[in-house]
Amino acid sequence: MQYFVYLLLLELLLRILYLIYLNIKNNRHFLTYFSIKKLLTGNISANEDFVDTKFGLIDENKLKNKFRFKRAESYLNISQKENLEAISTANSISQKTSEEIFSRKNSFEQLSYKPFVGLYSKSNQKLSYANVKSFGMQYNFENFEKQYNTKRVIIIGGSAAFGYGSSNIENNITNSLEKILNENQETEDSKEEIKWEVINLAFVASQTLSDLNLINMYISLLKPNYIIHLAGYNDFFYFFHSNNNMNINKKLFQFNGSQNIINFLYGSHNTKIKNFLFDNFIILKIFKKFLFKKEIDHKDQIYTVF
């Protein structure tokens, strides 16, 4: 019995040490509500102050100074200067303004899982390049029901159609299109002016299959006159990169992060319990890290003699 108490004390001590370490690393104050909560529950990497983004969980604190396009530098193999140059010239703003606009939480899309579609835009987030309202859509009207003398345009597609890359909301593709359609209307005779409404259903990492499902879901609600489908690259991109992982290769449709969601939804009870234990007990976490070694993929030459 006393050994059990010792174990608990050890666990508590480890938790305190780990919390101190994390807070020093992230320049945070130690005694916060969240810290004490974590101390007791043990889920040190709990995600209250984490933001769910396209790139996974990012600590909100880190987002304060995180430049949105930073990741592009590594996969495009360009310097920060070149990166900022591209963004600022494409948006006609200064590099300093670029850094400011595309930092912090409002430049990272938050996503939530939507069946048949994938990781869709979370509702009600005002990003620097898009204003996402209810149902994850971008629109400027007040009534979902189409009004008299209104014509609607739906935009579907991937991140390019979403508006990613624009430095302000007014000049992103949704609002630009609405503005252009509504101005310079030729009023012939006594015909009334048509009001154009542009609704953007696009989201990052969308493919044509998710576009199809979105249209199917919302076309009767929104009653559009035009569907503008700006897409093509994502289907190729996700198919191409899925080939590297044989497990995903066969699927007709896989979206960004799908394997994580599938593992969670269909994971066995044992796996879920195991993950829960390892997440919440530091002792087990250390145990797992040092003693369970992952199978290393040997890409070296091997001649199987056995």
């Binding site: 591209a86 494409a90 948006n91 624009s166 630009s176």
Partner: peptide
């Protein structure tokens, strides 16, 4: 000759505006 792309796939605000023009 003007910059429209912010990366090989995405457009800046000017590029998006011009794209919208063509769509319109």
């Amino acid at each position: 000759n003007d910059q429209r792309f912010v990366d090989p796939v995405h457009l800046g605000s000017i590029g998006q505006y011009e794209c919208a023009k063509l769509i319109s």
